[in-house]
Every structure is written in structure tokens, then in C-alpha cells.
């Protein structure tokens, strides 16, 4: 399988804290990979570094065979990496339709807003938001805002999509719907890195899982065997024994 994303010895320090400490991993085309780890393991930092929010302190990021570390986030986005945020980031006073149109316009798939609005319909239908298209984004429910976050990202027509805790705060029925949606996104040929805390979701959605712990890759392999790995279980249980203050500092 040709890798679409490759991280080579990637590091990021915040002051004295090594949020990422020599991470090397690759993601193959059309894979759905789970990225898990206890709070403060560096998962969100990894996404932030890959998407250009933070510059890496060391190491390289390769995407589709080209080096992208150090590029501005909008350039990285236009090369085909999209993400959803753990805390949803809508344009609160725009309509749902215009939020999605923004994704189309900014990724330069349309040259005018009205054309972008035309193209947006597809993504609204895909994420089940079509009914809400004229609603202002701030008035959506949490589940709706999570879907909008997804619709916006998909509208940039990404090759690789990071889903950062899309299921957090959702109830069981909503999680089932989200899982079904993830399956349909993967079916479009989009490579997915799924950051998750709910192991049930990881087991159902991902064949392969990468475990981050204290900024390092602790395990990487088939979901079943990784989740059964003693070190992984210890990392999760051990993290609970760490005093909250320390966890906060790492996060």
C-alpha cells in the first residue's frame, strides 16, 4: 500500500514539555486508521502539526510524496488534508449552507459564492443536514454542529481527513449514525485518521490502530491485537494514576 501520509521522527515541544517526541508512522491510501491514547498523549498536537497550526520542532511530514511541514495551514488544506476540531469550529452567524459553501470556495473549487452554494447541496445531503441548510449555524444541536463540521471539511474535497473525537458527547443512537457516516466517507475514497476515546467505535471502524503515549508511538498494528496489548492497557490505566495537574500540563 502506498503511504499517503508519512511522519518521520516528528517532534513538537511546548516549553519543556515534549508533546510529540520522535513520532514516525505512515498512513496508507484508503485506510481508516484509529489514533488513540490517554489524555495528553499528543493526539491533537499531532493533528495540529500535520495541518500547520503548529510548526514542528523537528522531523518531517510528507503528504502524497511531498514534504509539507512548515507550510501555512491554508496551503496544507488546499493540498488535500482536512480535519474536524474536537471543539467544533463553525462560522456561527452564517447559515449551514454558507458554512459548507465556505469549504468549497476556500479550497478553490468554485470561483463565486453562488456557484459554491450550488455545489454545497451535495454535502448537506450526504451529512443529512439538507433540511437545516437555511438555519444559522449557532442554532444547531451539538450533533448537528458535529455533522456540519464534517460537511465543511468534506466540502474541501480532501484526500485525507482527520476526525478528532467526532463522537464525543453523542448518545448511542447518534454514535451509530456517525459510524455509518464514517463508513460512507471511507467509501468515497477518503483516507481517514480517526481520533477516538470510545473503543467500541475504534473496534468497529478501524482495522488498524496507532497508540500514542507521552508523545511517542506505543503500539501500531491490527486493532484486535493492539487493544489486547498489555502495554496499551497499562498506558490507559497508568494515565488515570497520574495526578490531574500533570496531565493538564501535558495537554
Amino acid at each position: 500500500m502506498t503511504p499517503i501520509l508519512e511522519l518521520r521522527n516528528l517532534s513538537r515541544h511546548f516549553g519543556g514539555v515534549n508533546a510529540l517526541d520522535g513520532v514516525t508512522l505512515s498512513v496508507g491510501e484508503n485506510e481508516v486508521v484509529g489514533l488513540i491514547g490517554p489524555n495528553g498523549a499528543g493526539k491533537t498536537t499531532l493533528v495540529n502539526v500535520v495541518t500547520g497550526v503548529h510548526a514542528p520542532s523537528g522531523g518531517e511530514v510528507h503528504f502524497c510524496g511531498e514534504r509539507i511541514d512548515g507550510l501555512r495551514s491554508d496551503r496544507i488544506a488546499r493540498r488535500g488534508i482536512a480535519r474536524t476540531f474536537q471543539i467544533v469550529q463553525p462560522f456561527p452567524r452564517l447559515t449551514v449552507l454558507d458554512n459548507v459553501a465556505a469549504g468549497i470556495l476556500f479550497s478553490r473549487r468554485a470561483s463565486s459564492l453562488s456557484r459554491a452554494r450550488d455545489l454545497a447541496a451535495e454535502y448537506l445531503a450526504f451529512t443529512g443536514l439538507y433540511e437545516a441548510c437555511n438555519q444559522v449555524a449557532a442554532t444547531l444541536t451539538l450533533a448537528g454542529r458535529k455533522r456540519l463540521e464534517l460537511a465543511k471539511s468534506l466540502a474541501t474535497d480532501p484526500k485525507l481527513l482527520f476526525l478528532d473525537e467526532v463522537n464525543a458527547g453523542l448518545n448511542t443512537a447518534e454514535i451509530d449514525a456517525a459510524l455509518e457516516l464514517i463508513g460512507r466517507i471511507a467509501a468515497r475514497g477518503i483516507t481517514i485518521v480517526l481520533i477516538e476515546h470510545v473503543m467500541k467505535v475504534v473496534r468497529r471502524a478501524c482495522r488498524r490502530v496507532i497508540v500514542l503515549h507521552q508523545g511517542k508511538v506505543l503500539a501500531d498494528g491490527p486493532t484486535g491485537s493492539v487493544l489486547a496489548d498489555r502495554r496499551v492497557v497499562d498506558a490507559y490505566l497508568g494515565a488515570r494514576a497520574v495526578p490531574p495537574a500533570q496531565v493538564g500540563a501535558i495537554a
Binding site: T51, V53, R72, S73, D74, A77, R78, A82, R83, F85, Q89, P90, F91, P92, R93, L94, A102, G103, F106, S107, R108, K152, S153, A155, T156
Partner: peptide, 10 residues
């Protein structure tokens, strides 16, 4: 409204 989100969309 949200410049981080705008940059993330390209």
C-alpha cells in the same frame, strides 16, 4: 467569525 476555521478550510 472564526479565522482558524477559515484557514483550515484553505
Amino acid at each position: 467569525q472564526n479565522d482558524t476555521a477559515a484557514a483550515m478550510l484553505g
